[in-house]
């Protein structure tokens, strides 16, 4: 059983057991336009909630992706450096950024549900 949660900064978290998969939302990829490059952290890196976890670039913009949770990176999406376009075509599936452990289970509770996030995106126009 997996659960999907979102941040106001347009990252998503998909929790499978005690492994969290992180990426950016469909709304975020549309705002960015064509993604041309993704810089990922090293496996083993310690991430802190709200601090930079990755960088995603379009032609004319560079965006920091913040860690939605605190934990340790256990895998990164090796396909992204060569085929960044999958962030556009499949942000929630093939376009995931990294997998991490979850240091504080409580951090999931402060994130938005899918319904809340969709309502939030509506307000952004």
């Amino acid at each position: 059983m997996s659960s999907l949660r979102f941040t106001k900064e347009h990252e998503y978290v998909r929790l499978d057991g005690d492994i969290a998969t992180i990426g950016i939302t469909d709304y975020a990829q549309k705002q960015l336009g064509d993604v041309v490059f993704v810089e990922l952290p090293d496996v083993g890196a310690k991430l802190e909630r709200g601090k930079q976890a990755a960088i995603v670039e379009s032609v004319k913009a560079a965006s920091e992706v913040y860690a939605p949770l605190t934990g340790v990176v256990i895998a990164v999406n090796e396909a992204l450096p060569d085929t960044p376009a999958i962030v556009n075509s499949s942000p929630l599936a093939g376009g995931w950024f990294l997998k991490m452990t979850l240091a504080h289970a409580g951090e999931m509770d402060v994130l938005m549900s899918e319904a809340d996030y969709n309502a939030y995106v509506e307000t952004l126009g």
């Binding site: 490059f37 670039e57 379009s58 032609v59 004319k60 913009a61 560079a62």
Partner: peptide
């Protein structure tokens, strides 16, 4: 190209 390295972005 690769201008995201640069100061204006």
């Amino acid at each position: 190209t690769l201008s995201t390295r640069e100061q204006h972005i």
